[in-house]
Amino acid sequence: MALNTPQITPTKKITVRAIGEELPRGDYQRCPQCDMLFSLPEINSHQSAYCPRCQAKIRDGRDWSLTRLAAMAFTMLLLMPFAWGEPLLHIWLLGIRIDANVMQGIWQMTKQGDAITGSMVFFCVIGAPLILVTSIAYLWFGNRLGMNLRPVLLMLERLKEWVMLDIYLVGIGVASIKVQDYAHIQAGVGLFSFVALVILTTVTLSHLNVEELWERFYPQRPATRRDEKLRVCLGCHFTGYPDQRGRCPRCHIPLRLRRRHSLQKCWAALLASIVLLLPANLLPISIIYLNGGRQEDTILSGIMSLASSNIAVAGIVFIASILVPFTKVIVMFTLLLSIHFKCQQGLRTRILLLRMVTWIGRWSMLDLFVISLTMSLINRDQILAFTMGPAAFYFGAAVILTILAVEWLDSRLLWDAHESGNARFDD
C-alpha cells in the first residue's frame, strides 16, 4: 500500500549564491595573561575582544583620537594649579581661619623630617597626573615632529594605576569627618577644581587605549598563520617573532617567553612588605597634641575612634588600611606557593584573586592621604596640633611594595603550573 505524501511548494523562490571570495581570516594573537594562541577576527570600533580561555580583555573598544586626548590633557593642565594650590577646605580653629590644600599637606610631611613619605604622596597625587598630561601632550606634538614615541607609550600603561586623584578625593571626605570634632569646616574653591580634575582624569584614563596608539604610530604586520613560536610582548602586546637582537619589532624591548626574574622580584617585594606591615600596624601612625597632652593612634585605634562619629567612614578606612593590605599579602603568598608547588586545582579562583588584588591594591594609600591633609588643617603649635607617627613611612612603603609585587608577577606562570593543553579552566 503506497502512502500519498503531499508536496510542499515554497511560496518564495530560494536563491543560492556561491561564495565568490575567501572568507576573511583572523590574525593570530597570544593572550598576555595566559599565553593562549588564538585567531582574533577583525574588530570594529566600539567592540571589545576577550581571550577565549581566561576571559582577559585583549582589545578595548573604547578609543579616543589623539586630538581629543590632547584637549583633555590641556584642560587638566589648566585645572591643576587651582586643584593643588587653592584651598580645598576652610576650618575655623580657636577663632582663626585655616586653609588646607594639597601642596601644603605634602610640605608639612616633608617639613617634619619625613621627606620619603611626603614624596610618596607627591608622586601619586601630583607627579603621576602631571606625567600623564605631559605624556599625552608629548605624543600629540611628537607625532607631528617625527619624534620617538616608544618610551612614552611604554610608560603610559604602567602609569595608570599610580594616578590616585580619586583616592585622594575620598581622603578629603575622611579628613573632614575627623577634623569636624575640633573645628567648623567649609569647602574651599580649590575643592571644585579638584573634583573637576578627578572627573576629567577618570574619563581620560578610561578612554586612553595605549594598544590602539601603538597600532597608529607603529603598525606591524600581524601573524596570519598559526605558529607556536609566536611570542607576545608584555610592553606593547604585539604578537610576532623577535628581531635579530631578540627584541620586539614594535617597542624594541627584549621579547622573552616569560617575564625575567618574575618570581624572585615578586618574592622579594612580598617578604619586604610583610616585614614592614608589622611596625606599620604596631607603631603610632598619627599623633595629636591637645592642650599640651599627647595622644597617639595606631591604624586600628584611629579607626575605632573614627567609628564613634561615623561608622560608615570608619568601615571604608578599615577596608583600605587593614583589610586590603593583608588580603593582598595572603593572596600573593598563596599564588606564589601554588606556582612553586605546581598546583593544578582552583586555577579559576587564583586568576580571579590576582585580578582582584590588581584592582584594589592602590586604595591602601588612602590613610597616607588623610594624614597629609589633616596635617595641613590642624597645626596650632602646642594648643592643638596633628602630626604623623613613625608607622606612616612603614605603611606607605608596604603598600608600594605590594603594588610592585602584583605588577611583577607574570600571570602566565600560573598556567605553566597548571596542566598543559587546557582550553578551559575551572575549579
Rank of each mutant, 00 (worst) to 15 (best):
F425R: 10
S338M: 14
T402N: 03
L159A: 04
L384E: 00
L354H: 08
L347W: 13
W92K: 02
V179M: 02
M356C: 11
K12G: 06
N4C: 06
H261V: 05
T67S: 04
L89R: 03
G190V: 03
L208T: 07
D416N: 13
I131H: 01
D114S: 06
T15Y: 06
G235S: 06
W214C: 15
G421C: 05
H340S: 10
R424M: 07
G396F: 03
L384I: 05
C343L: 14
G61C: 12
C251Q: 00
L306C: 02
P279L: 14
E42N: 06
C343A: 12
Q295A: 12
C236M: 00
Q108I: 15
V329R: 01
I339D: 04
I96V: 07
P41Y: 06
A183F: 01
D35R: 02
G173C: 10
T202V: 11
I285R: 00
P129V: 06
V275D: 07
P129W: 03
Q244P: 12
L352K: 14
S45H: 08
V210P: 15
N101G: 05
V370Q: 00
S45Y: 15
G127Y: 01
L94F: 08
E228F: 15
Q295R: 08
A268V: 03
P242S: 13
M304T: 11
D381Q: 06
G95F: 08
I403V: 14
E296T: 12
T334D: 07
V189Y: 05
D297F: 02
P151F: 03
V203C: 14
A73Y: 10
E22A: 06
G396T: 03
L271E: 04
R221F: 14
L282R: 08
I167L: 03
W140C: 15
M164N: 04
I14C: 11
L169F: 11
D410T: 00
A196V: 15
S372I: 04
A71L: 05
A115T: 11
S176M: 12
N422L: 06
L156V: 11
A314M: 12
N379I: 03
L88N: 03
H340D: 09
N148R: 05
K328N: 00
L165H: 13
I288F: 03
S308M: 15
F74Q: 04
R30C: 07
G105R: 00
M365Y: 03
A100T: 06
S286N: 00
R17W: 06
I172H: 02
D426M: 08
N291D: 02
L290S: 02
Q47D: 09
F386R: 00
P129K: 12
D243K: 10
G20N: 06
Q33S: 07
P219Q: 14
F217V: 11
K12E: 06
S305Y: 05
Q33Y: 10
M72A: 04
A405W: 04
L197E: 07
A70R: 07
D60V: 07
R350A: 11
L37C: 06
R362Y: 02
F333W: 11
A397I: 04
F123H: 03
L255F: 15
L347M: 12
Y218T: 10
E211R: 15
S135I: 01
N209I: 11
L306G: 00
Q55I: 05
L276P: 01
R259T: 11
T239D: 06
A312H: 14
P279Y: 04
L282E: 10
M103V: 04
A398D: 06
E42I: 05
P219F: 13
T134A: 14
Y241M: 14
I378A: 01
L205R: 13
G421K: 02
L413C: 09
V275E: 11
S372P: 01
H252M: 05
A196N: 14
V198C: 13
Y138T: 07
A2L: 04
G190Q: 01
L352S: 12
M147C: 09
G20A: 08
G142T: 07
P219W: 13
W107I: 08
G389T: 00
Q112A: 10
V152R: 00
V324F: 15
L88H: 03
Y168S: 05
V170W: 15
R225L: 13
T134Y: 07
S65P: 04
L366F: 01
Y182M: 14
Q186R: 13
V399K: 00
Q186E: 06
I330S: 09
Q7E: 10
G171T: 11
S65N: 11
N310E: 15
G85K: 10
I253C: 06
L271Q: 13
C51L: 00
S301N: 07
P222T: 14
L23I: 08
L191N: 03
N148C: 04
T402D: 07
D227L: 14
L282D: 05
T327G: 15
I8D: 11
D227Q: 11
S420A: 14
H90F: 11
N281Q: 12
K229S: 13
W415A: 09
C248P: 00
L69S: 10
L300I: 11
S305D: 01
I371H: 00
C343V: 12
D243W: 08
I400P: 02
L40F: 05
G105P: 07
F217D: 05
I167M: 03
I91W: 01
L409N: 07
Y28N: 10
I177K: 03
Q345Y: 15
P81Y: 05
G85I: 03
